[in-house]
Computed example of a mutant assay.
Amino acid sequence: MSLIFGDQPSEDEMNQNEAIKDNNNTVDDNNAANFEWEYAMRRQMQQIVPNLWLGPYAAALKTKEEELCRVGITHIVCVRQDIESHWIRPNFPSKYKYLCLDIADTPTQQIIPHFPVVSRFIDECFQERGAVLIHGNAGISRSAALVIAYIMEKQNLTANQAIRVVQSKRFCIFPNEGFRQQLQEYEPILQARGIPLASSGGVKRSFSEEDSENMDTNQI
């Protein structure tokens, strides 16, 4: 079974949308599922579920401090490969709690071992009534895979269903082939841990703000 991604517009189409609607450069707190995606939004972070944000490194730059404060970010997951650490690095080490992960965006990279680490970090953030941003370089492959895995676990969803949830908020996500395969392999791992997954028909339930504030860490 292959993972399904919606048809994405061409680069020219997205550039046209950006030229027409580039006057909206602020993050939408409500982030409704049926928004119209704009190319410029790739450079912003989006709220996937309450208090869980996904975006590119550009969203965590020093110039974005005001925006990070405005949405209440307290924790940041910084995903990069060792060779990228010179330019993808924590910019607010004294202000936010960071989790830095060494993950290459290659099909042979093992990402499953990082899923429970990120899950515990997010749960810790939620227990402290905080909000977390997960970013890599572009916010498309590595960081997206980590968020998808978390949604699978907490919403009891299959990989395909979790991808739809994340893509409904950040349309440009596209984990590499190896990560997509590992997300499928994560399904039986979750089931072996006693986490039932919804049937492939649809989303079992939505993730509410109360979920983020009252996360059951015994599930980890």
Rank of each mutant, 00 (worst) to 15 (best):
L61A: 14
E153Y: 03
L3I: 12
P56F: 02
C78Q: 10
D211W: 04
D29C: 11
I88W: 06
K154E: 05
R164E: 12
L54P: 06
H86V: 11
I122P: 01
E213C: 11
V203I: 15
A40V: 10
R205W: 01
Q44G: 04
E209I: 14
K95L: 09
Q219A: 12
E18Y: 09
N137F: 12
F121E: 02
G55S: 08
I76Q: 06
V132E: 00
N91A: 05
L157H: 07
T63N: 13
Y96I: 04
R205S: 06
F174G: 06
R70H: 15
H75D: 08
M1G: 09
A59R: 04
K95C: 02
L99T: 06
S119Q: 12
V77E: 01
C172V: 15
A58N: 12
E38G: 11
E177A: 12
A32R: 13
R142S: 09
P50Q: 03
K204I: 08
I148V: 15
T108V: 13
A144T: 08
I76L: 12
I195S: 02
G6H: 11
I20M: 12
S199Q: 12
N24Q: 13
P196C: 05
H75T: 06
D216T: 04
R170H: 01
A192N: 02
S10V: 03
D12R: 09
T108A: 11
Y186R: 02
C125G: 04
Y186E: 00
E213Q: 11
A138P: 01
V166Y: 01
I189N: 00
E38T: 10
N25F: 07
S85R: 14
G178I: 02
E187V: 07
A33I: 13
E210L: 05
P116R: 05
Q161D: 09
I88T: 09
G202K: 08
